[in-house]
């Protein structure tokens, strides 16, 4: 099984060779799990100068020995992983493997039973800069299906963490305009969100994250129910945003797409089976270990 990694515009092969943020001796970085030896040379590719300039150099997310269960049912066990700024991480695993739980733990929506989570260097429960995280939940697409809300109103929600209780300023409205422009749905701004197609809806949610000027974008299976062409455009957009220095964490059920697009892959099935570069994931036996035998990565032509 081999994977052809496309060196396309969104796949940043060039600016990844000289990583200043961390190196192979970084103890937190994907060596401390036992299922798969992460043997990728040069896995320190994911550094992003523009992101580190502004807010120091702590990783976007750091998880140490995180365990979480719903009642007696463990959902995530002893996971340690670090996501550097500017990284594009694909989070994969079979159905019910705890991907969403892991993401919610990273974002501080859930609190771990054991272990420690940091967001941009702060313990997650003390992290207060809500505007720095853009989140698109699995349910975002059907949330508020009967609720009358326009695209513009949804995108404006991205400014609410900035505004607090004050009135929205001109700056807020400009940020919304820019975000709508960037994802190319300015002409749809006064449409009801639930009248949009799946692809347009996803763009609206991305715009919400952009309006909030988030530097971490976390998405839970955003392309479910989106047609192939819109999905292609969507990944193009994600690539562009990643190039601008935005850290991306993406849960995706389609392994082909995610291994093509993401820099790094974390594969979990309750425990972490693999965390390393996309190519090392394809070469490893993590896929089989996590998903069971007869699994393979299906690539899409594009």
């Amino acid at each position: 099984m081999t994977i052809d990694l496309h060196a396309d515009a969104h796949y940043r092969m060039n600016d990844q060779t000289t990583g200043g943020g961390h190196d192979d001796s970084d103890p937190d970085h994907d060596h401390d799990h036992d299922h798969v030896a992460d043997s990728t040379p040069g896995h320190d590719r994911a550094t992003e100068a523009s992101a580190t300039l502004e807010h120091g150099s702590e990783p976007a997310v750091r998880m140490e020995n995180v365990t979480f269960g719903y009642g007696d049912q463990p959902a995530v066990e002893n996971v340690s992983l670090t996501i550097e700024r500017g990284e594009f991480l694909g989070l994969v695993g079979p159905n019910g493997s705890g991907k969403t739980t892991l993401l919610l733990l990273m974002l501080g929506v859930l609190s771990p039973d054991e272990g420690r989570v940091e967001l941009f260097g702060d313990p997650v429960d003390e992290f207060a800069d809500g505007e720095r995280i853009g989140y698109v939940s699995q349910k975002s697409t059907d949330a508020g299906s009967t609720m009358p809300v326009t695209v513009r109103e949804v995108v404006t929600m991205g400014r609410f963490a900035h505004a607090g209780h004050r009135r929205l300023s001109d700056r807020d409205h400009e940020a919304v305009d820019e975000a709508l422009e960037t994802v190319g749905i300015r002409d749809l701004e006064s449409r009801r969100i639930n009248e949009l197609s799946g692809g347009q809806t996803q763009r609206a949610y991305i715009a919400r994250a952009l309006a909030s000027e988030a530097d971490l974008l976390a998405m839970d299976e955003p392309t479910v129910g989106v047609d192939a062409r819109s999905r292609e455009q969507f990944y193009g957009l994600l690539g562009d945003l990643n190039d601008r220095g935005i850290t991306i964490i993406l849960i995706e059920h389609d392994l082909g797409v995610v291994t093509d697009r993401a820099d790094r892959i974390a594969c979990i099935n309750r425990t972490l089976y693999h965390h390393g570069s996309a190519s090392s994931f394809a070469e490893s036996d993590a896929l089989e270990a996590a998903y069971g035998p007869n699994s393979e990565i299906v690539h899409h032509d594009h």
Binding site: G130, Y135, M147
Partner: peptide, 22 residues
């Protein structure tokens, strides 16, 4: 009037509002 934005956000997308630290 004071909490218009917050109420709207939690009504539309409670999870995202949580992530935005409301």
């Amino acid at each position: 009037a004071l909490n218009y934005k917050q109420f709207l956000f939690i009504t539309f997308d409670e999870q995202a509002a949580r992530v935005a630290r409301l």
